[in-house]
Every structure is written in structure tokens, then in C-alpha cells.
Design a protein around this nucleic acid. Structure first.
Length: 226
DNA sequence: TAGGCCATCTGGTCCT
DNA sequence: AGGACCAGATGGCCTA
């Protein structure tokens, strides 16, 4: 659970029942024992999971990797078996020769694989911007956990942004900062602690630079300065 | 061994 | 007709 502390902003970490605790345990417990994801990375996945078993199947059945459609093709363990059982294709393939049907089916399979790989790439991209622990010792977020965390993270950021806007609006009213902010406007507590860890600069009485280190376009005092 | 997660295959549906 | 998208089925791998 240690790595969970590095996540910060715990509000967005609250996952739906069934995913939150399990997701935590997944990352903490499994990752803690572990090292790198033993499953590795699938080819072309851009860092996404690679399933050894899937690789075997993929390498054997994938047109992408074995010379697209055919010859080296071996029916997949499941779908392939079903395909063999069916021995036919519905829809567009109806009326085509078996070899053409097979070629078409393999083409469709390859497209679907690419589509899913693209989807996984996108999920990896999403994981990369979610501030959960990224160390090798932490297990990668599952797909569902990634989506739920992303959703909560977005909500949290939106809420934080709204708080900041209200705070800036309050400061722009020209009221002295020495007076404690109303509770509703001071999410950071009684002391003048600012979200970005900056220190108020003496130049601006409104201390707006404390937030960004630069004069704020939203601060009337900064804007009034020559 | 059960449960979770995942990759792949497949057929159906919708859209261009 | 062909491609994209989707959901169900299947089986492999890993962890508790």
C-alpha cells in the first residue's frame, strides 16, 4: 500500500465498489512482491501488456506477424476451433470459396487485433498521465481501474479548478489576505498555504504570484502595474 | 484451485 | 462491399 501514498489526491482514487479495493490490492500486493509485470509487453502494444500465451497464438495466427493471412496460420485455440467447426462465414463471405473465406476471416481478425492494440495503446497513454505510481514494482492498472481512476481524476481536477477560480475571484475583490478566507473559499485551511507551494512575492499585495510564480493575468494589481 | 485480467477469434450490426 | 464497432466465447497466465 506504500506506493498508494504517492498517488496524492486520494479523492479521485475512489473507485467503484469492486474495483477500488481490488485495484489497490492489485497494485500494492502484487506489485510489492514483484518486480516487473511478468507478462511483459505485447508486440506493438507500446508498453501494454503482452500475454505470452497470446503471443504464441498471435505469432502463429496473426497475419501481421506471420505473413498475413495464411500459410503459417494455425486456427486459434478458441475462435479458430469454432471457425473450423463452422467451416463457413456468414454475411459477405457467403458464396465464396473456402480459401477466400479463410483469407477474409484472417483479414478481419487482423483488423480486429490492430483495433484492439490501438485501444490498448490509448489506454497506456491514459495510464501515463494518471498520477498513480509508475514504478516497475507497481503493477499496471487494469483497464477498468484505469478508466475509473481517469474519470475520478478528471472530476477532482475540475473541482480543484473551480476552487481556484473562486479563490482568485475572492482575491481580486481586493480584500486583505490577512483576514482568513471563508471556509468555502479556503480549501487549504486557515494558514495561507497555496496549492503550488510557492511563496507570496512582496511585489503584489494580493500575492497572486504565489500561485504561478509570475504575475497573474487574472490579478488586477498585477495588471495595473507598469 | 478459484477468481481476475487479458488477448484473440468470431458473428452480428451499423455506417460509408 | 468493406470496414468499424461491439459483445460473447474461449483459453492462458498470474495471484491469493
Amino acid at each position: 500500500m506504500a506506493e498508494l501514498k504517492s498517488l496524492g489526491g486520494e479523492a479521485y482514487l475512489a473507485l467503484a465498489p469492486g474495483y477500488g479495493p481490488s485495484a489497490f490490492a492489485y497494485g500494492a500486493v502484487r506489485g510489492g512482491g514483484g518486480g516487473e509485470d511478468p507478462r511483459g509487453t505485447y508486440p506493438g502494444g507500446g508498453g501494454a501488456d503482452f500475454h505470452p500465451g497470446a503471443l504464441g497464438k498471435s505469432a502463429e495466427s496473426s497475419g501481421e506477424q506471420s505473413g498475413e493471412e495464411e500459410e503459417g496460420f494455425e486456427a486459434g485455440v478458441k475462435g479458430g476451433a469454432a471457425f473450423e467447426r463452422e467451416g463457413k462465414l456468414k454475411g459477405a463471405a457467403v458464396g465464396k470459396k473456402p480459401k477466400e473465406q479463410r483469407s477474409l476471416r484472417l483479414s478481419i481478425n487482423a483488423r480486429e487485433r490492430r483495433r484492439m492494440h490501438d485501444l490498448n495503446d490509448a489506454l497506456d497513454g491514459l495510464r501515463s498521465v494518471i498520477p498513480y505510481a509508475h514504478s516497475p514494482s507497481v503493477r499496471k492498472l487494469s483497464k477498468i481501474a484505469t478508466l475509473l481512476l481517469a474519470k475520478n481524476y478528471i472530476l477532482m481536477q475540475a473541482q480543484a479548478l473551480e476552487e481556484m477560480r473562486r479563490l482568485v475571484a475572492y482575491l481580486n475583490q481586493g480584500q486583505a489576505l490577512s483576514a482568513p478566507l471563508p471556509a468555502t473559499l479556503n480549501p487549504f485551511g486557515q494558514s495561507p498555504v497555496y496549492p503550488f507551494g510557492g511563496t507570496a512575492l512582496p511585489g503584489c499585495p494580493e500575492k497572486c504570484t504565489a500561485f504561478t510564480g509570475a504575475a497573474s493575468a487574472l490579478c488586477k494589481h498585477c495588471n495595473d502595474k507598469p
